[in-house]
Simulated assay, not measured.
Amino acid sequence: MLPKPCPPELRRRALDLLEPGRSVRDVAALLGIAESCLHRWKRLDLLDRGLKSPSPAEAESAALAMARARFDLLDPARFWLAGDGLLGVAGLG
Rank of each mutant, 00 (worst) to 15 (best):
Ala90Met: 12
Arg25His: 08
Glu58His: 02
Asp75Leu: 15
Gly32Glu: 01
Leu38Arg: 04
Ala90Arg: 15
Glu58Arg: 09
Trp80Ala: 11
Leu44Glu: 09
Trp41Lys: 00
Leu17Ala: 05
Leu30Ser: 05
Ala67Lys: 15
Gly93Phe: 15
Arg70Met: 08
Ala67Leu: 10
Leu87Gln: 15
Ala59Pro: 03
His39Lys: 15
Leu73Lys: 06
Glu9Ser: 13
Val24Ala: 03
Ala65Asp: 06
Ala29Trp: 00
Leu47Asp: 03
Ala63Gly: 04
Ala28Pro: 07
Glu58Pro: 06
Leu44Asn: 15
Ala57Leu: 12
Leu2Gln: 00
Ala90Ser: 12
Gly50Tyr: 01
Lys52Ser: 14
Leu46Gly: 09
Leu51Asp: 09
Leu74Ala: 09
Arg43Ile: 06
Leu17Val: 05
Asp72Leu: 10
Leu74His: 09
Asp45Phe: 07
Arg68Ser: 06
Asp72Thr: 11
Leu92Ala: 06
Pro3Asn: 13
Leu46His: 12
Leu64Ser: 02
Arg25Thr: 07
Arg68His: 02
Ala77Asp: 02
Leu51Ser: 13
Lys52Cys: 07
Leu10Ser: 07
Ser61Met: 00
His39Met: 03
Pro8Leu: 06
Gly91Asn: 13
Gly32His: 05
Ala82His: 05
Arg43Pro: 10
Pro8Val: 02
Leu2Trp: 00
Arg43Met: 10
Pro76Gly: 14
Ala62Ile: 08
Met66Tyr: 03
Pro3Phe: 09
Phe79Ser: 05
Cys37Trp: 11
Glu58Tyr: 02
Arg12Trp: 02
Arg49His: 04
Arg13Ser: 03
Pro76Asp: 09
Glu60Cys: 06
Ala63Glu: 00
Lys4Met: 01
Leu92Lys: 03
Leu51Ala: 06
Ala67Tyr: 15
Gly91Pro: 06
Ala69Asp: 09
Arg12His: 01
His39Glu: 00
Ala28Arg: 15
Arg13Tyr: 07
Ser61Arg: 11
Pro54Trp: 10
Pro7Phe: 00
Gly93Asn: 11
Ala82Trp: 08
Gly50Lys: 07
Ala34Leu: 04
Pro20Phe: 15
Leu86Ala: 06
Ala90Trp: 12
Pro7Arg: 00
Leu18Ala: 08
Ala14Asn: 05
Leu47Gln: 01
Pro54Gln: 14
Trp80Cys: 07
Leu64Lys: 12
Leu47Gly: 10
Leu46Ile: 01
Leu87Trp: 12
Arg70Val: 13
Leu81Phe: 10
Leu38Tyr: 02
Ala77Asn: 15
Arg70Tyr: 06
Gly85Tyr: 15
Pro8Asn: 00
Ala63Val: 14
Pro56Tyr: 13
Cys6Leu: 04
Ser23Cys: 13
Met1Ala: 07
